[in-house]
Nucleic acid binder design. Structure first.
Lengths: 205, 205
DNA sequence: GTCTATAAGTTGATAGAC
DNA sequence: GTCTATCAACTTATAGAC
């Protein structure tokens, strides 16, 4: 056990965290293809066997990395939910798109790893079934936000929430993927244009 | 040389094609993580060394698989460009979304492989620079279609084409990724709802 | 909890016969 | 063009000392 350590038990020497950080770095730079326990150990300046001590096996490590990033999504999404009714719809949408974009830029390598490894995918499909991490869940906070704005009369009364959330998330994801594939590492510059294109689909006419 | 063989040169024994098909199958079922030359040879009922004879190395094989699927995108996209001005905008958009969805369902495992392998990603980043396959190019046919519809006055005169194309492609891609992650293999059922949500962003008010 | 050392298996790739 | 045989390097994982 590490992380929440406050003096009880063995002192936290940080190897576990170093391993997680090294894993994430390799995933982002080189991809799962080059993610070997030896390379992780080298970058974390730790023994290879420490990986197995902390995470049981390679897949356990990958799972831990994914788990580490799930709360971040809630942060991004719930930040916007809280803003429902405040500020302009345009500003909120820009905030949501940029927030999702930054989030996706960070987790795209990890998502790619999940998609690239059948075993890892299977482990998350199980979890998805019991409702904890199912991919469609990603839409829920956005749906909540839109529902609140609809209740307040700031978006069309007949807005179909799930498709609308899908369009927003899909647009943010696509921007992140495009930028990663083209090797650009700067934040997106065209948020305003995307927002202005999206808005007429949301507001009353 | 195989494929276009029409009697000249050595007879086409189909090993090359079998290797490509086996590669695609493994990618779809298990992901790059399990894509070994040995497994490919086994599934293709061919010798492992034949892979190296035809594709030089593992990366060359992956490149060949990607290349095999690029024309398919043009087919999907250009089908819709041809329909500009014909049928209803709603029908065309539904056709485009479903076409892109089917396309993405097929290439998602391949795209995942590219994202998961840094070397492969690098090879395509180079190509992208010289303009042949750059990811943003995926938007061009959709931009062309929207431009034609705009010229005909069937979409808003002030529609911002690139963001609009991004939204359409992103939505289609997101649906495909979601469905793959949740293990569902059927075509999308909610196209109509998505189209009706998207449409107000495109048409004149 | 972290290390060193090591085992057993798999990997991508080559040489050479047919 | 396709095969069999082979290799050195690397892979995940374990045992046991500290």
């Amino acid at each position: 056990m590490t992380g929440g350590n406050r003096g009880r038990g063995r002192p936290d020497t940080g190897v576990r965290e170093a391993i997680l950080a090294a894993t994430e770095a390799i995933l982002a730079e080189a991809g799962v293809a080059r993610l070997s326990t030896k390379e992780i150990a080298r970058r974390a300046s730790a023994a290879e066997s420490s990986i197995f001590y902390h995470f049981t096996d390679r897949l356990g490590l990958l799972q831990a990395v994914v788990r580490l990033h799930l709360p971040l999504y809630r942060d991004v999404a719930e930040e916007v939910v809280r803003r429902a009714g405040q500020g302009s719809l345009r500003d909120n949408l820009a905030l949501l798109l940029d927030g999702l974009d930054a989030y996706y830029r960070r987790i795209t390598p990890i998502l790619a790893a999940v998609q690239a490894d059948g075993d890892l995918r299977a482990r998350f499909a199980e979890r998805g079934a019991d409702g904890a991490v199912g991919p469609q869940r990603a839409l829920l906070p956005i749906v909540d936000y839109l529902a609140e704005e609809r209740r307040l009369g700031r978006v069309r009364a007949d807005l179909d929430l799930e498709p609308a959330a899908l369009v927003i998330v899909g647009t943010a994801y696509q921007r992140a993927v495009f930028r990663r594939l083209s090797g650009v590492d700067a934040p997106a510059a065209d948020t305003a244009r995307v927002v202005d294109t999206l808005l007429p689909a949301l507001i009353a006419r």
